[in-house]
Structure formats: structure tokens, C-alpha cells
């Protein structure tokens, strides 16, 4: 075997191993061995209005056309339609929808080819939500359309928000039934906070105030707050000056202290003085800045530096 052929074989082995590792223990897809097909279903459930959809395979992807029954319009499948398929869509830009249809047991539904479908929502890639766990969204029953079973031949039904459509005990026409405790009913997802869209600065004289909403609001701080901050800043500077005593560089660090007034800009300080200064600064800030409900702008950016002990006092030295 020449080098070129060997490289091709090795590439195939590498790719095959990668697929095996990713798909270990899963189902081997056989969809590509089947011809493209389509099937038309009557749909009822909690995802949307009752209607008729056509699911077509090509042969490993599926597309959904027909009435708007609240289901995504595309997806894929592993084998045949009767074995079930997946649909992928979105609720909005923050939430993706993933639906899985599988064959219903004959106890649940007598018609051959009937599928039960459940959908779940999970955060989209642009959603800053921490948890990616899916949340149940809706459920539907798909019964193949036949000459004797076609929702389009039935009287239209409109259900209230406390109801959803289901097939009547006899026949193929949908009827409204009350939502039960075990039914999966779509619940509007919680609002998503995109802080990157919030204002990044306030007009002159105003500062950000947290309100519990997604974005902070801008507000002019009270004069009493400004006076308290100035007093706090002066007192902290005085105390900080006496907290720099050192013998070696190892005695120093760069730290900061904060309080209800504001957070001081980082500076060099003796390591063993940090706790006492921070405690005092927090307590003094509570006394002086009780009226402060806004956050002052942060400290200006400074070049990288390190702490050092110079002439018995901690200082910062640029790197």
C-alpha cells in the first residue's frame, strides 16, 4: 500500500473511531437505507390547534408541512417514520424547542402508525441561562390520516386556555378536554436578561441604581450621599496611609476596601492590616452613606503593577 492510500485508510479509521466514541451505545442510524417517504397525520394535543400535517423524509431529514399545530417544521430521524423522529425549532431567540415522536403503544392508541410526541424547551446558545436542562413544553398525538379518519372532515373546534384538543373516545374528530395535572401545557418561559443590551453608562451627574429589573436605571445621587462618600474617602485615605508599614516586599500586597459609600481604588497595603481596615471601612460606610442607593463609576484602568516595600512603606511598582 502506498503512502497516499495508507493515509486515506488511516483517515477513515480515525473518523470511524471518532464516530464510534461519540455514538457509543446509541442507535445505529439506518435511515439512509430507506427510500424517501411521507405520511400525513391528524394532530391533537397541547402544542397548538388540532390540524393535519404531512411529515416527509429525505430520507434522514424530515420536513413538516400543513396546518400550524405548534410543531417545528424540520428535524431528522434515525430509521423509519414509524420508529419516530425528532423535530427542532425555537420558541423565540432565547429558547430552542426539541420534540421527539415515538410509536404509541397499542394500549394508548389503537390506530397503527400512531405516534406520541413530546416537546421540551432548552436555552438557545444566545441565552445566558446557566442550566441547559430541558423543560417540558407540550405533547401531541399523531394519528395517520385515512379515508375514514381526517380532521379536515370534522367540525372545527376552538378550545379555551384551560383546555386542549384530544380525540373523542370514538371516531377521529377532535374535542376539547380540560387540562389535567399530568398534561404537559406550554408555560411561557421566564424572561431572559441580556445585560449586554443595557446602557453601559449614565448621563453626567447620574449613577446606576439596581432596581431588580434586568437593566439598572440611572439616577442622580442625593447630596447627602455625595457628602458621605467624600468624608468616607478622606477617612479611608488617612487610615490607609498608616496601614502601609512594612519591612520587606513580602509584607505588602495590593488590595482594596469597600462599603456602602463606594469601593476604594486598589492600592498597596501591609498584608496584616487589610482585615482591620476593611472592617472599619465597611462600618464607617454604613454610618456615612445610609442614603446612598446608587453605584459610583469604577476605578480607572491602571497598568500592571506589583506591591513592594520602599523606605518602610508599601507602594505599587509598575511592571
Amino acid at each position: 500500500m502506498n503512502a497516499s492510500s495508507r493515509r486515506i485508510v488511516e483517515t477513515v479509521v480515525l473518523a470511524g473511531t471518532a464516530v464510534l466514541l461519540l455514538g457509543h451505545g446509541g442507535n445505529i442510524p439506518t435511515c439512509f437505507t430507506y427510500a424517501a417517504t411521507s405520511r400525513t397525520y391528524n394532530v391533537v394535543g397541547t402544542c397548538g390547534p388540532a390540524g393535519v400535517i404531512t411529515v416527509a423524509t429525505t430520507p434522514c431529514a424530515v420536513t413538516v408541512t400543513g396546518d400550524d399545530v405548534g410543531l417545528p417544521s424540520s428535524g431528522n430521524l434515525g430509521a423509519t417514520l414509524d420508529d419516530g423522529f425528532d423535530l427542532y425549532g425555537s420558541i423565540n431567540s432565547d429558547w430552542d424547542l426539541e420534540c421527539g415522536a415515538g410509536s404509541a403503544s397499542r394500549v394508548d392508541a389503537g390506530a397503527a402508525g400512531t405516534l406520541l410526541l413530546t416537546c421540551g424547551r432548552h436555552p438557545s446558545p444566545s441565552n445566558p441561562a446557566v442550566s441547559n436542562d430541558p423543560v417540558d413544553w407540550c405533547q401531541a398525538q399523531l394519528v395517520p390520516v385515512t379515508p375514514t379518519c381526517d380532521i379536515h372532515a370534522c367540525a372545527p373546534v376552538t378550545c379555551s386556555s384551560q383546555e386542549h384538543t384530544a380525540f373523542a373516545a370514538s371516531g377521529c374528530c377532535p374535542t376539547c378536554v380540560a387540562n389535567g395535572p399530568n398534561d404537559i401545557i406550554p408555560v411561557p418561559p421566564p424572561p431572559v436578561c441580556h445585560r449586554e443590551t443595557c446602557p453601559q453608562s449614565c448621563p453626567a451627574g447620574q449613577e446606576f441604581m439596581a432596581t431588580g429589573a434586568c437593566c439598572d436605571t440611572c439616577k442622580a445621587p442625593a447630596q447627602q450621599c455625595l457628602d458621605g462618600r467624600a468624608q468616607w474617602r478622606t477617612e479611608v485615605q488617612d487610615r490607609w496611609a498608616s496601614a502601609r508599614a512594612c519591612a520587606t516586599d513580602a509584607d505588602c500586597t495590593i488590595s482594596t476596601v469597600g462599603s456602602q459609600c463606594e469601593t476604594a481604588c486598589p492600592g498597596a497595603i501591609a498584608t496584616d492590616q487589610i482585615a482591620a481596615l476593611a472592617s472599619w471601612a465597611a462600618m464607617r460606610g454604613t454610618e456615612l452613606c445610609a442614603s446612598c442607593d446608587t453605584t459610583p463609576p469604577g476605578c480607572p484602568a491602571v497598568p500592571p503593577s506589583r506591591p513592594a516595600c520602599t523606605n518602610g512603606a508599601c507602594v505599587t511598582i509598575g511592571l
Partner: peptide, 16 residues
């Protein structure tokens, strides 16, 4: 599991 599922999702594959 989540990362593998995301990788396989476009291919219609499922892993154990």
C-alpha cells in the same frame, strides 16, 4: 452527555 448530544443532534444520532 450534553456536549455529545449537541454534536450528534444535526446528524440525527443519539448516544447512550
Amino acid at each position: 452527555d450534553r456536549d455529545i448530544a449537541l454534536l450528534l443532534q444535526p446528524l440525527g444520532l443519539h448516544t447512550a
